[in-house]
């Protein structure tokens, strides 16, 4: 099942920043990495990733340089900047918060269906 377009768009920034937090990379490798990690569920069209990278670069979160690839062709590499690290930490807090809230809600609703599904210590 593919993710809805809005969710893909919303998660683009934290995904890119998180991948670049692990080291310098380039567009193609970033897309491959996202596909790999999501088991193919977050399938980006390329037309979407590059403008995201350029937008992040213009807002100063990442920086780029042109360098040679293994094949000798010029390739554009992206790297995280300090401001990007700060925004990534903020994104992380937000996503963990949303994740936590939804997790709690779903645990509660599962609990109301069957007490066996209640989180330890909680009652229906």
């Amino acid at each position: 099942m593919a993710l809805p377009k809005e969710l893909v768009a919303a998660s683009a920034t934290p995904l890119v920043l998180s991948i670049l937090a692990q080291g310098e990379s380039y567009g193609y490798a970033i897309i491959r990495r996202v596909r790999e990690l999501s088991g193919g569920e977050v399938e980006w069209t390329d037309g979407m990733l590059y403008p995201v990278l350029h937008r992040l670069e213009r807002s100063g979160l990442i920086e780029s340089r042109w360098g040679a690839s293994e094949t000798g062709r010029e390739r554009k590499y992206y790297r995280l900047r300090r401001e990007g690290k700060r925004v990534l930490a903020e994104e992380r807090r937000n996503w963990e918060m949303v994740n936590g809230v939804l997790g709690r809600l779903w645990e509660d609703s599962a609990c109301s269906i069957s007490t066996k599904l209640c989180p330890s210590g909680a009652t229906a």
């Binding site: 069209t45 390329d46 037309g47 979407m48 590059y50 403008p51 995201v52 350029h54 937008r55 213009r58």
Partner: peptide, 17 residues
Amino acid sequence: RRIGSPHALNIEYEKAD
């Protein structure tokens, strides 16, 4: 095909800048 049509690419790039 995976990279997207020129029209679609133009729309995405124009949105970004």
